[in-house]
């Protein structure tokens, strides 16, 4: 015990933690207030709101899984090159040369789990009427985050560059051909012409913009890689900040007025 006391009385410890052991109201408040991560929370919350049977903890787990995906994703980026010649072999090497390698598994199953937790979080928020005033805007931020989660998962699906990947993305992005006015097989696209020249073709429509080519190819792989590792996570990170901030500003975890 005296060793513990020696550590907690040291200048180093005190420079990090500005409070005593949180077993009294003052230090319980300080523990949350004086920690940049914990101060996402308020000091006090409604008793009804901290019950796991009320929140299911699904929003928190979604954020946790986002962090898991970020960390495992960064590690995977060390070993993966988004080029057609290397992509598949890099993933294969991870499988074949790493004993008990589970990094890709953590990343993939974490991603699937995150899709599930986002849905269940939305379900809980709906069933408790937590989108009602004053939380309307935050529900909308949440809907966009849901879409971004699906986009993250979808763009990542292509990266292993195996049959599963390329065909899932082919099937998924084929839908964009049929976008009204903007896809070359979409209603109305035939009317967008300049003289005799059709402006919306397989080489200029919205699907082409998404894939960077007429079929899922090298350009698509690079594009999806950048979207998956940089663009979408940045957007999601930004909106997560807004989402959390609004939870606080709109009165914390919902409860009866």
């Amino acid at each position: 015990m005296s060793l513990m006391k020696f550590i907690t009385d040291s200048q180093i410890w005190k420079s990090i933690f500005r409070h005593k052991y949180p077993d009294n109201p003052r230090d319980q408040a300080l523990a949350v207030l004086s920690n940049v991560f914990l101060h996402l929370h308020p000091i006090k919350v409604r008793k009804s709101g901290v019950r796991m049977s009320f929140t299911w903890c699904m929003g928190g787990l979604t954020f946790f899984l986002f962090l898991v995906e970020t960390i495992t994703g960064v590690l995977l980026m060390f070993y993966y090159r988004p080029v057609v010649e290397y992509a598949y072999n890099d993933i294969k090497a991870l499988r074949d040369h790493v004993p008990i390698g589970i990094m890709r598994e953590l990343h993939r199953w974490g991603a699937h789990l995150m899709v599930i937790t986002v849905w269940l979080h939305m379900l809980r928020v709906f069933l408790t009427g937590s989108y009602k005033p004053p939380r309307e805007f935050n529900w909308n931020v949440g809907v966009i985050l849901l879409v971004l989660t699906l986009l993250l998962s979808f763009t990542g699906y292509l990266l292993p560059w195996d049959q599963l990947a390329i065909w899932a993305i082919t099937v998924g992005t084929n839908m964009a051909r049929a976008t009204p006015l903007m896809g070359h097989e979409g209603p109305g696209a035939a009317f967008i012409q300049l003289g005799d020249v059709s402006l919306v073709t397989a080489g200029s429509d919205v699907r082409f913009g998404l894939l960077g080519s007429k079929t899922v190819g090298a350009a698509t792989l690079l594009r999806f890689y950048v979207l998956h590792c940089i663009a979408v996570p940045l957007g999601a990170g930004l909106l997560i900040a807004v989402h959390f901030w609004r939870v606080r500003k709109d009165g914390g975890i919902s409860g009866p007025m």
Partner: peptide, 12 residues
């Protein structure tokens, strides 16, 4: 939830 809403607990 109504019964518990007025009670507030410390996050920590």
């Amino acid at each position: 939830e109504h019964r518990e809403a007025s009670r507030r607990v410390y996050c920590w």
